[in-house]
């Protein structure tokens, strides 16, 4: 029996999230006395695959197939479900990101496996299987019982610390059985903007609110994001005013994100905003009102006019980087 973790790659490379998934899956396998196995789909070099051995993975099943170059949820579901059956997987672990959110529910129906999504910790109890997850956009935790023999967990990014645990890992090249399931979706076009990161996956997010006073003041926000290789975001009033695109709105009715570091600049931190960002590991707030609720969520704060403090911060960071 095994714990099977789907380790997605980005142009053939793994990210910190992949190692978080591997760490989580190996710990879970240890608890359950099962084998931690990873599955990778797409072209990934041997050296890159080997990296997962550092986090306790015992077997890597690598599938390369031209028909899987494009991410199609139905074909990917079939491939992962087939591997899960072959490896007697009792637990499947995926990321709570775009790919995981696309695949976990489909796998759930196919394998009749209960799902706990957006989980940040190991199960509390194994029998019955109870695991905690954030609900009500971070305003509560729920103890969820998964009642099926096979179970699926999607792990929230930046919620589980890496555990280095070198293992002897076997790499097995496997074939995908795609008979009769041609992908129905087809990618027609891709628009790439240099330097634009996917907000929901970004490790560092720099977000501006109404305290930035005008869309003309966004330069330092973009600069800070650029220096830190992060993504830009904004609060709801900012996207409602049309200062920034709607895709950047983080909050309860926008994007819900969990970066390693979130900068809330000129954002007061209304409940609805906090709901979208409270899963961030570290929050830095810059606001002129020392009583703003954002400071209750933040670990680091600066009280001051965001439009004045931010350029100084950018300058200091630039100096620190060049030093």
């Amino acid at each position: 029996m095994s714990v099977l973790v789907y380790t997605e790659n980005w142009n053939g490379k793994f990210k910190k999230l992949s190692f978080e998934l591997a760490s989580y899956a190996s710990r879970l396998a240890e608890m359950l006395n099962m084998d931690p196995i990873a599955v990778s789909i797409g072209q990934v070099d041997r050296d890159e695959l080997e990296k997962l051995a550092g986090y306790g993975i015992k077997k890597m099943i690598a599938i390369e197939n031209d028909a899987l170059k494009q991410f199609d949820t139905q074909t990917y579901t079939k491939v992962i479900a087939d591997i899960a059956s072959r490896e007697s997987a009792k637990l499947l672990v995926l990321a709570n990101n775009n790919a995981g959110k696309s695949l976990a529910p489909r796998l759930s129906v196919r394998l009749k496996a209960a799902v706990a999504s957006g989980v940040g910790q190991l199960p509390e109890k194994l029998s019955p299987f109870v695991i905690k997850k954030r609900v009500f956009s971070g305003n509560a935790l729920a103890g969820l019982e998964l009642r099926t023999e096979t179970k699926i967990i999607t792990l929230a990014q930046n919620s589980f610390d890496l555990i280095e645990k070198p293992a002897d890992m076997v790499i097995e090249k496997a074939e995908a059985d795609l008979a009769g399931i041609a992908p129905k979706t087809s990618i027609k076009d891709v628009q790439i903007q240099t330097g634009k990161l996917l907000l929901s996956d970004a490790e560092i997010v720099v977000s501006g609110g109404r305290g930035m006073k005008s869309p003309d003041n966004w330069g330092p926000i973009e600069e800070l994001a650029g220096l830190l290789n992060g993504a830009t975001a904004c609060s709801r009033p900012v996207s409602d005013e049309g200062w920034r695109p709607h895709e950047e709105h983080t909050g309860q009715t926008g994007k819900i994100i969990a970066p390693n570091l979130y900068f809330a600049i000129g954002i007061s931190g209304a409940t609805q905003h906090l709901a979208g960002i409270s899963a961030s590991k570290y929050i830095v707030a810059i606001n002129n009102d020392k009583d703003a609720p954002i400071f209750e969520a933040a670990q680091y704060g600066i009280v001051g006019d965001a439009t004045k403090v931010l350029p100084k911060l950018v300058e200091a960071l630039r100096k620190a980087k060049s030093a």
């Binding site: 209960a114 706990a116 609900v135 509560a140 103890g143 019982e145 933040a298 680091y300 001051g304």
Partner: peptide, 21 residues
Amino acid sequence: LSQTLAFEPPQPRPACNFIDP
């Protein structure tokens, strides 16, 4: 396939460390 057994409040965050602007 699943059931929510109980709810609890989230863990409180540590106090904010204020830095001179």
